[in-house]
Design a protein around this nucleic acid. Structure first.
Lengths: 201, 201
DNA sequence: TTACAACTTAACCGATCGGTCAACCCGGGA
DNA sequence: TCCCGGGTTGACCGATCGGTTAAGTTGTAA
């Protein structure tokens, strides 16, 4: 077995799914092992605890957010504010897809995990915070671009605007999951431009 | 024992605290009973399951939100938009108080619970949705008042604005907990008026 | 060919999980 | 006085919890 077996990656994949479908505390190590088709002993060969698997799952979420959400939607092939709109449209699409595939509106895996873990696992909490920071930074750069291109007033505070956009997006996903209504993200997203001070919205 | 003993209420109180400090799945029935100083058998005299206790906890949250958050902050002793500002200031104060008392920024108990439960307990999910609806309705009424008093343009969509405000508030609480930074709610809250279309912000 | 490290296997640990049970305690109405 | 019913008690249920252990089974490199 010269190269790393894929058992570890299967574990991370299945854990991402199960943590999101249920919750962190609601999924047992045995269930994770069954899903990844490995033995419990192997689990503890790859991860020294369930927490450590959660850390790996959060890292994987971070990569997915960057590569599958931020990079495509905030790419500079369209004007800056249109990227923000595209960002929220993609969130809406994900909620709709989740609802189609699972029968329920899933919400944001990061937010759901954050709500559960923020009060008792400082290490995981900080890891989640760093993923949110990545979202904020990408949105902030987009807002700065919008200011530079005259789409937003010169005085606009890009840092605070980006922070508020992340809050709006995560809150919208949470509400959309709670109401089982993917369209809620779309409605809220359509107000996002007003939040950062765009005139037309 | 003519009147209902207070064991049931102690249980709800302690469960509100423990579900928030840890999480729903992360707190066992035995721990709940210890905190409320009752026997496990008594637990199942008052509630036929842990789920049913959670339902009672959500109801209690709903009352607290109405009486301790919405009623005082959205009272009409100040102009409508100032009430919205007061609403977010109160959220900030709660995060700060939580941090002082518990050592961590707690986030919103509703949001944390919602993130954990929305994907597998439809009955509790709907109960949580109704509490969020209460927040939205109160904010919507405030926005309508703002429109009537000329603080917002006539064309403002109060319903969607209120929905977005709830998303913004819950998202801000979640981020503030994740970053352990109560001030985040304040910063985001200061942008709330821009979200609904106020000019001055 | 041997040796070692990566990996797998399945039995096992004490603790805890959500939930049940039958016995009991005790105050108020008849 | 007796009984009844809300409330309490603590032992108990099988299942599962997160985690450990020791003995294999590999592929690979010396």
């Amino acid at each position: 077995m010269g190269r790393t077996s894929d058992a570890r990656e299967r574990l991370i994949e299945e854990a991402s799914r199960l943590f999101h479908e249920h919750s962190y505390e609601g999924v047992g190590v045995q269930e994770l092992c069954d899903a990844a088709d490995i033995n419990k002993g192997s689990f503890y060969h790859f991860f020294k605890s369930k927490d450590e698997l959660a850390a790996a799952v959060i890292d994987a979420y971070g990569v997915a957010v960057r590569d599958e959400l931020l990079a495509p939607t905030l790419a500079d092939d369209v004007p800056p504010l249109a990227r923000i709109e595209r960002f929220f449209e993609e969130l809406t699409r994900e909620q709709r897809a989740g609802r189609r595939d699972l029968g329920i509106t899933p919400g944001c895996p990061l937010a759901n995990l954050a709500g559960e873990l923020c009060n008792h696992e400082p290490k995981l909490r900080k890891k989640l915070a760093r993923v949110f920071d990545g979202m904020r930074d990408a949105l902030e750069a987009t807002l700065r671009d919008a200011i530079a291109k005259g789409e937003l007033p010169r005085g606009t505070n890009a840092a605070q605007g980006a922070e508020a956009l992340v809050a709006l997006a995560e809150g919208a996903c949470l509400l959309s999951a709670t109401h089982d209504d993917p369209a809620l993200v779309g409605r809220v997203g359509r107000m996002a431009l007003a939040l950062v001070g765009a005139k037309g919205a």
